[in-house]
Amino acid sequence: MKMVVAFLIAVLLGGCITQHGSYRLSVVDANGRDLAPGISMTAEGSHIYSVRNAMCSAHPGATVLIADIQTGQALTSESPYQCRK
């Protein structure tokens, strides 16, 4: 029984994705216009989700773009993110 529980825990934890690094987040409308000009939002690691959700709360229907600060490349697993209306 202990082996089964240990196996299940290992499988479940193996499926979790943890983001590492520093990211810049921006929010744009359907035309690509920056909805927060002059504001640079950054987040470390998995805190991108809190920042993304805050941006979506402020701008329903917008698109959140997430890019690695060091490389400038989009975080393809999470960006672009379409906020719900």
Rank of each mutant, 00 (worst) to 15 (best):
S57L: 12
V11P: 00
C16N: 03
I39F: 04
L12T: 09
T42S: 13
A36T: 08
G32D: 03
M55E: 01
A43G: 05
G32R: 08
A43L: 07
V11A: 05
G45A: 03
R52E: 09
Q19T: 10
A30L: 03
C16L: 11
S46A: 14
L25M: 04
G38I: 08
A54G: 12
H59V: 03
Y23S: 00
Y49L: 12
L12C: 10
L12P: 01
V28H: 06
C56A: 01
R52F: 06
Q19E: 10
L35F: 10
N53Y: 11
E44V: 11
G15S: 07
N31R: 15
L13D: 08
I9K: 00
S26A: 06
T42P: 06
C16H: 05
I9W: 07
R52D: 05
S50K: 13
G32A: 04
D29E: 02
I39V: 15
H20I: 10
S26Q: 12
P60T: 02
L25T: 01
S22I: 12
V11K: 04
Y49T: 12
L13I: 07
N53W: 06
A30H: 09
N31M: 12
A58N: 12
A43Q: 07
A10L: 09
I39P: 01
S57N: 15
Q19V: 12
S26W: 05
G45K: 01
G21L: 00
Y49D: 05
V28P: 06
M41A: 15
L12W: 11
M41R: 14
R33W: 05
C56Y: 05
R33E: 10
Y23E: 06
A43Y: 03
M41G: 13
Y23K: 04
A36R: 09
G32T: 01
A10H: 00
E44I: 14
P60G: 02
V51R: 05
D34M: 07
N53K: 13
T42I: 13
C16G: 04
R24I: 07
G21R: 03
V11Q: 06
S40A: 14
G14N: 02
S46P: 12
S46W: 13
H59K: 02
Q19R: 04
V28D: 00
G32I: 00
N53Q: 14
G45F: 04
S26M: 10
A30W: 07
V51P: 03
V28C: 06
P37Y: 03
T18G: 12
N53H: 14
A36P: 08
Y49A: 14
H20K: 11
